[in-house]
């Protein structure tokens, strides 16, 4: 063994390196963060920047080549042409509906899991909620297509009541997306409610509050940031979706489809980029709004 009073720098190369790193905290930090930072800046922010710049280019109508000259034309088209305004509003509406439906389903479920279920039941429920996330998105979307088909499962189930399913279209899209993103709403609310001490509800009851008042004045304010955290997932995932709507949405289009069609069929990359900045802008506005609720600390 080396004598204990021997300075670290005088050992082998590994020891020397360790000693050097120990004395230079900045070197340590840059070694630790260089790879993730490179990824974040180049691949992630770089791609976003490229998208943003490309949104101001145009294409040559005859050759289809990208013309790298600054123009507001894409954004002018987006604002002035009715079809895009409709698609934009429709997408936001779908995202809002999906978020509200998921919130309404997820809250009681999460409350039961966090506050009422036995530890055993709770474990099984968490597994049951996570399992669908392991299945392919496409499989789940096509499963809904089968269920929503004419004379499919939903028509058959509603038949005895003289009703039939919504068929393919926007309602079907909302249903499918609500199903797909439900776990992303349940899990944050569940985590938020787990942090709510049980005896706060006892305390409210003790002070004379009935069940609904206890919910309104104690449970909801404490859980609200968690609900907002869940809504960020469901809202942004719905806003950018273009596959589910293709599978169950009939002829309906969402922002994602416009982007997709402009990359593919129309071969207008700059316009696709311009359209793609819209959901990004909407999400930025949304995040700024929810930042004030403290929800970002719940993510």
């Amino acid at each position: 063994m080396k004598s204990p009073d021997r300075p670290a720098g005088h050992g082998g190369p590994v020891r020397r390196l360790a000693g050097m790193l120990h004395r230079r905290p900045y070197l340590r930090l840059s070694l630790l963060l260089s790879a993730p930072l490179l990824w974040l800046v180049v691949a992630y922010l770089g791609a976003l920047a490229a998208l943003f710049v490309a949104a101001f280019w145009s294409t040559n109508v005859f050759t289809g080549d990208v013309v790298k000259e600054f123009t507001w034309q894409n954004f002018q088209d987006l604002v002035t042409l009715d079809v895009y305004r409709t698609v934009m509003l429709r997408s936001v509406l779908v995202a809002v509906l999906v978020t509200v439906i998921d919130g309404l389903i997820a809250f009681p479920m999460a409350f039961y899991m966090a506050k009422m279920a036995s530890p055993r039941t709770r474990r099984w429920l968490v597994i049951a909620i996570l399992t669908p996330l392991w299945a392919s998105y496409l499989v789940k979307a096509y499963a809904w297509r089968v269920m929503l088909a004419n004379d499919g499962l939903i028509d058959w189930a509603l038949g005895p009541f003289g009703a039939h399913g919504p068929g393919y279209g926007l309602p079907a899209t909302v249903m499918t997306l609500s199903y797909l993103w439900l776990p992303y709403m349940i899990l944050p609310i569940y985590a938020g409610l787990e942090r709510l001490p049980d005896n706060l509800m006892d305390a409210a009851g003790d002070l004379g509050a009935r069940t609904f008042r206890t919910f309104r004045t104690v449970v909801w304010p404490v859980a609200f940031p968690a609900v907002v955290a869940g809504s960020i997932f469901t809202f942004s995932l719905s806003l950018g979706d273009y596959i589910a709507v293709k599978i169950v949405g009939g002829k309906s289009q969402m922002i994602g489809n416009v982007v997709y069609d402009n990359i593919g069929v129309a071969n207008n990359l700059p316009f696709a980029a311009a359209v793609a900045t819209l959901p990004v802008a909407v999400m930025v506005v949304y995040l700024v709004a929810v930042r004030r609720t403290g929800a970002l600390e719940n993510l």
């Binding site: 001490p197 706060l200 305390a203 009851g205 003790d206 002070l207 104690v218 304010p221 404490v222």
Partner: peptide
């Protein structure tokens, strides 16, 4: 509890944090 004329001081106080 809300129909009983008693009030409780809880062991860990159970104050409403918000």
């Amino acid at each position: 509890p809300f129909e009983r004329d008693v009030n409780t001081v809880f062991q860990d106080y159970a104050l409403f944090p918000h």
